[in-house]
Design a protein around this nucleic acid. Structure first.
Lengths: 154, 154
DNA sequence: ATTGCAGATGATAATCATTATAATTTGACA
DNA sequence: TGTCAAATTATAATGATTATCATCTGCAAT
């Protein structure tokens, strides 16, 4: 945790940005909630708990900055809100998501799975892939069980 | 074209919606601009050319309706705007997109390419896939050539 | 043909996320 | 200590989308 913070600090410094207290608090919130997919508003509320004087605009700017540095990825699941997701340390590619249409839960898939597909796209479409976004919409394990349980013999 | 319009009309009727003149004008615009990825505003401006009295709200409502009927897919490339993309006739799956980070162009990929990946997700994550969104970001063929041409010996 | 009614529409106001602005603060460095 | 650029805060502005509400349309029953 501290290690990853250090790393991000160095990344900032390498582009002559500073790790201000506000930025540090924001990064800490992201690290502590890595499993979630927080919106800017979510982050703002959480950061406020440890740094009550922070402004929403600063959170937006920080997230934007982290996004440029590829520390976080900005994603969008189709509701009108951008969400910010920490890139796993050392991950080459952005991970994928499984969005449940029943309960709204979001699972992460770290496996790449797209190597073959990218090769095809590069070869057949002559498109030089830099990044990708893959989201599956469907029914998660939990909701499948609920459906089976509650709907078996009515 | 007329054939596809008929088909959409039937789909509407099957859910007891009507194909009003405004809705028809909107669908026609979508059919005539199938290659593009129009925002609601774009659609609005185009529809206004043939039906000047239409309101923006109606366009939004129509696009929303078509989206529910899976006639169009609502997509989001990360700028703050939703775009509406006609589903190809008979297509099981939503097609993929190649977004060029240099010129902003968007290519469509109709091949599925994800069959294997979906199988893995269904098996290993017990996630029942209903739909997917796959977008590659990178450099399109044209921009690659420009880069090579203009940057070869300076 | 007229009435009644549900669904659609158009104009506009309201909402919500995000971005821009301007005044103030901070922190490194001379 | 004084200076200056970067960063921050509070707030206003923007832009996309949604809600509201009065009006309109087309059809079924009278």
């Amino acid at each position: 945790m501290e290690h990853r913070l250090e790393r991000i600090k160095k990344q900032l410094h390498s582009q002559s940005y500073k790790l201000t207290p506000q930025r540090e608090a924001t990064v800490r919130v992201l690290l502590e909630n890595e499993a979630d997919h927080l919106s800017a508003e979510d982050v703002y509320l959480l950061v406020k708990e440890k740094a009550p004087e922070i402004g929403l605009a600063t959170v937006y700017r920080t997230l934007e900055l982290l996004s440029e540095l590829k520390v976080v990825d900005k994603i969008n699941f189709g509701d009108g809100v951008s969400r910010y997701d920490l890139r796993k340390e050392g991950a080459e590619h952005f991970h994928h998501h499984l969005v449940c249409t029943e309960c709204g839960s979001v699972e992460e898939v770290e496996e790449d799975l797209l190597e073959e597909v990218e090769k095809i796209v590069e070869k057949d479409w002559k498109f030089q892939v830099k990044d990708h976004r893959l989201t599956f919409h469907g029914v998660c394990r939990v909701c499948q069980e609920i459906t089976v349980t509650s709907g078996n013999s009515s």
